[in-house]
């Protein structure tokens, strides 16, 4: 187990989280290999965001252990980047895009020290990577939803981490931003980083990610898309309520059998 946990960025053992008396996550046993783009998928209330927050120590856990690169979150903090849901902050806050990105460097700066020229330049490079360099001095309320999301991604890049957790980065973004995020994820993977995303859209999931975690309070299945993204697993995750999910899985399986499928253009938006 200890051998596995050192090269596995995330090893979760027996994790249980509850709000008041209601279990949100139950007995999660999960180990994520390095260098993968991982999608966490499941219905509303499945505990997808909670799983990320529990790993980052942002919500109290009832039981279980989380090991990141073989250590606790506290020990490995500098290796981990986090992109919260865009809607979790007030975008009318009096600040500009570059300033938000610089917040990604605060962890390395530590207490009291103010960001300086080095942090500014790093933040600018991160904004460039997400195609937002021209908006560095823009007040954040004047950015579109997709641009705000890219600012959040740039902030995580400024953390210069090995492992990234992203909470619904694709929700409510425009096509340009969606492309930018996909390219960014692939770039991160090429640099050997691991990215774990809460994701809603079953349609795009197999194209964007290569590793899948199916969650509905309990862990339903985890593994590479080829073996995990099956109608059987999706039925177990969504119950009998999600016919659309099953349809998508059938398309995916047909694709793999190299049978040309007429495109189902209507995407479930997952809300």
């Amino acid at each position: 187990m200890s051998n596995v946990s050192i090269d596995h960025p995330v090893v979760i053992h027996d994790l249980t989280v509850a709000y008041r008396d209601k279990p949100v996550l139950w007995d999660i046993e999960l180990s994520i290999p390095p260098g993968k783009l991982v999608a966490i998928i499941g219905p509303n209330g499945a505990g997808k965001s909670t799983l990320i927050k529990a790993v980052l120590g942002l919500v109290p856990t009832v039981a279980g252990t989380v090991s990141l690169f073989g250590g606790s979150y506290r020990e490995r903090r500098q290796m981990i980047g986090y992109v919260p849901q865009r809607s979790s902050v007030d975008w009318d806050f009096p600040t500009h895009a570059l300033d938000v990105v610089m917040m990604g460097t605060y962890g390395q700066l530590g207490w009291f020290k103010r960001p300086g020229k080095a942090q500014r330049e790093l933040a600018l490079r991160c904004l460039e990577q997400v195609g937002m360099a021209d908006f560095a001095n823009r007040q954040i309320s004047q950015l579109s939803g997709g641009q705000q999301q890219r600012v959040f991604l740039a902030r995580a890049l400024a953390q210069d981490a090995q492992l990234y957790f992203m909470d619904e980065p694709f929700v409510g973004v425009d096509a340009v931003t969606e492309r930018a995020i996909v390219n960014l994820l692939r770039d991160l993977r090429a640099r050997g980083k691991t990215v774990v995303c809460v994701h809603h859209d079953l349609d795009s999931a197999p194209e964007y990610f290569d590793w899948l975690v199916l969650l509905n309070v309990r862990l339903i299945a985890a593994g590479p898309f080829e073996t995990t993204f099956t109608s059987e697993n999706l039925r177990k995750t969504y119950g009998g309520t999600m016919g659309a999910a099953i349809k998508h899985i059938e398309h995916f399986e047909e694709d793999r059998l190299a049978i040309s499928v007429q495109a189902d253009t209507k995407r479930p938006n997952g809300h």
Partner: peptide, 11 residues
């Protein structure tokens, strides 16, 4: 003030 959760994730 801007993002308390991110602050907590940074330690």
């Amino acid at each position: 003030a801007f993002d308390a959760e991110f602050a907590a994730s940074l330690g």
